[in-house]
C-alpha cells in the first residue's frame, strides 16, 4: 500500500465527496420529512393501492416492502433505488478513474515511471475509494438517524447499521466490478458497461416479480442480494449476502489486477 497515493486520491476527491454527501443528505431529509404527512393521510393509501404492481416492484427493487411503515417507505423511496443509483454512479466514476482515467489523461506514463509496483498502485487507490465509499455510506446512515429522530420517525439504529453494512458491501462489489471493466476497456466504455450492468441488474430483479421466466434469472441480479427493507426492519445484518458481495468484489479485484499486471499502457 502506498500512503502517498491514498492521501492524494482522498484529497483530490474531497470536494466531490462533500457535494455528494450534501446531495444525499438533502434527499434523505426530504424523504424523512414527508413521511409523517404521507403516513397520516388516508387518501395517499387509497392512491397507493391503485398503483400497478409493476411500478411498485420497480420502485422497491423487487419484493414486497410495506409502503406505510417507516422502514418500508424509506426503503422504497430512498434506499432501494435512488440512493444506490446516486452513490452507485459516484462509485463507478471513482472506480474507472483508478487506471482508465489516468491512461485516458496520459498521466499514467509519469506515474508508472516511478518506482511503484502496479499492485500497489491498484490496491492503494482501491483503498482510497473504499474509504470514501465508507464515509458516504456512514454519512447517509448517520444523517437518516438524525433526521428520523428530528421528525419522530421510527427507524431503528440497528436497522440502519445493518443496512449500512449491506450497502457498503454492495458498493465495494460495484467498485471492483467497474475497476475490472476499467482495466479491459477505455474509461467511457467501462462506465457505460458498468451503468448497463447496474441498471440491467435492477430491472432484472424488479421484473422477476412479474414474469416466471425472468424470475429464473433473478439470481444473476445483484439487487436480489440487496434488500434494505428487510435489514431496516429486522435490524439483522444479512451476513450471507454481505459475504457474497465481498467474495465477488475480491474476485473482480483479482481479475482486475491480472488484467493490469501485464497491461500495455498506450501512449496518448
Amino acid at each position: 500500500m502506498n500512503l502517498n497515493l491514498i492521501y492524494r486520491d482522498i484529497k483530490d476527491r474531497r470536494v466531490s465527496m462533500f457535494m455528494m454527501s450534501m446531495s444525499v443528505l438533502l434527499y434523505a431529509l426530504v424523504i424523512i420529512a414527508i413521511y409523517p404527512v404521507f403516513a397520516g393521510n388516508a387518501a395517499f393509501a387509497q392512491i397507493f393501492k391503485q398503483y400497478p404492481k409493476a411500478l411498485l416492484s420497480l420502485l422497491a427493487g423487487g419484493g414486497n416492502a410495506d409502503f406505510f411503515s417507516p422502514a418500508g417507505f424509506l426503503s422504497i423511496e430512498f434506499l432501494s433505488l435512488w440512493w444506490p443509483i446516486i452513490v452507485g454512479a459516484y462509485v463507478m466514476t471513482l472506480a474507472t478513474a483508478i487506471v482508465a482515467k489516468e491512461i485516458n489523461d496520459g498521466t499514467m506514463d509519469v506515474l508508472l515511471s516511478q518506482p511503484l509496483e502496479r499492485w500497489k498502485l491498484m490496491t492503494s487507490r482501491l483503498t482510497a475509494d473504499i474509504t470514501l465509499i465508507f464515509a458516504l455510506d456512514a454519512v447517509t446512515m448517520v444523517g437518516i438517524w438524525l433526521f428520523a429522530r428530528a421528525y419522530a420517525v421510527e427507524i431503528s439504529t440497528k436497522g440502519l447499521f445493518a443496512t449500512g453494512i449491506l450497502a457498503l458491501s454492495m458498493f465495494i462489489f460495484l467498485e471492483c466490478l467497474s475497476l475490472f471493466f476499467g482495466m479491459i476497456m477505455d474509461r467511457s466504455k467501462a462506465l457505460i458497461t458498468s451503468i448497463t450492468v447496474f441498471i440491467g441488474s435492477h430491472f432484472l430483479n424488479a421484473l422477476s416479480d412479474l414474469n416466471k421466466t425472468v424470475a429464473k434469472l433473478r439470481w444473476m441480479s445483484f439487487f436480489k442480494y440487496y434488500k434494505p427493507a428487510a435489514a431496516l426492519t429486522t435490524g439483522e445484518v444479512p451476513w450471507k449476502d454481505v459475504a457474497l458481495f465481498l467474495a465477488l468484489a475480491a474476485a473482480f479485484a483479482i481479475a482486475a489486477y491480472i488484467a493490469f499486471r501485464r497491461k500495455d499502457i498506450p501512449a496518448t
Binding site: 489523461d105 496520459g106 498521466t107 506514463d109 509519469v110 515511471s113 501512449a267 496518448t268
Partner: peptide, 11 residues
Amino acid sequence: IGYIPGDLNLY
C-alpha cells in the same frame, strides 16, 4: 531512472 515522456500530460 529519470524519464521525460514525449507526450506531456500532467495533473
